Simulated scan of single mutants.
Amino acid sequence: MGEVQGVARSISNAPPAHYTLKIQLFSLLESTSGQKHESAEFEAGGKWYVSSFSINHKNVKDHHSLSLYLDMSNTSSLKLGWEVYAVFRFFLLDQNKDNYLVVQDALLKEKRFHGLKLEWGIDQFLSLKAFNDASNGYLVEETCVFGAEIENFSKSDTECFESKVFVTGDQKWKIQLYPKGRRHGNGSHLSLYLVIADSTTLSPASKIYAEFTLRILDQVQARHIVGKGNYLFNASNQETGWARFATLSYFNEPGNGLLVTDVCLVEAEVTIHGIARAL
């Protein structure tokens, strides 16, 4: 199929998690070279659609290429100045082997979408020569199947995610996760904290000594990221944790299993060793 610099190709037996598009009579699309063709809208942490072009690259040996792009749609509901960071992959079914060619940008996996940049993609997804070769299984009897998978996690207007409130030692707690970091982890790390959820239960003289564990689960290989600590909570100190719990590059890397189809799993264990209250 030929290699293109900056493009990573792999084979997957699993179908795309978010969207599959079956096209029949593909030659009708191919005959309109240079025109944009759009898929139906689909949901994956936002509204998206896939668009395609057939482009003539004069400086490439197999110069007619199939190009695929991911576009954001329905952005009117987002706040002014919004930004979305997403990692995405395109899929193409090999109908002979019943597996998928997976293609993504190898140089800059996380793309920044915003009001002036609603579209990212791969200009040279696959040469039309390779695509039309029946032995490759991509186009069979004028039919092909494309797909898209998106890991859309962080939005600049979502500074902090909070867990549901849970109770340990008659005290209400919650977990706070900052997807783009906080304090000295801002912009480089994911930040994670254990927080007293209801501060009204603490009088000025109340103190709670707790041992705790916070972890983000590796959903693929069970190699979880774990932080452990002890802390004396009181009315003035209601949270503790790590501003640099995990680097954003490691967290967003698909193979590390921390973010799978736009989902991360966070756990907390809290043990109360002592409670002091004013008489």
Rank of each mutant, 00 (worst) to 15 (best):
E3N: 12
I11T: 12
S12P: 04
A14L: 07
L29C: 11
G34F: 12
A44W: 01
Y49V: 09
F53P: 02
S54K: 09
S54C: 07
I55A: 04
V60L: 07
S73E: 05
N74I: 00
L80W: 04
G81P: 05
G81Y: 06
N99E: 13
V103W: 02
V103G: 01
G115N: 10
Q124E: 12
Q124A: 10
A130F: 14
A130Y: 14
D133V: 05
N136I: 10
G137S: 14
V140P: 01
F146T: 11
F146S: 05
E149M: 11
F161C: 06
V165C: 06
G169A: 10
K180C: 07
R182Q: 07
H184D: 05
G185W: 02
G187E: 04
D198K: 01
P204C: 02
K207W: 00
A210Q: 09
E211V: 10
L214R: 13
A222S: 14
V226F: 09
G227L: 11
A235D: 06
G241N: 14
R244N: 09
R244E: 14
L248N: 08
G257K: 00
L258Q: 01
V260R: 02
V266A: 07
V266S: 08
A268V: 14
E269I: 14
I272S: 07
A276P: 00
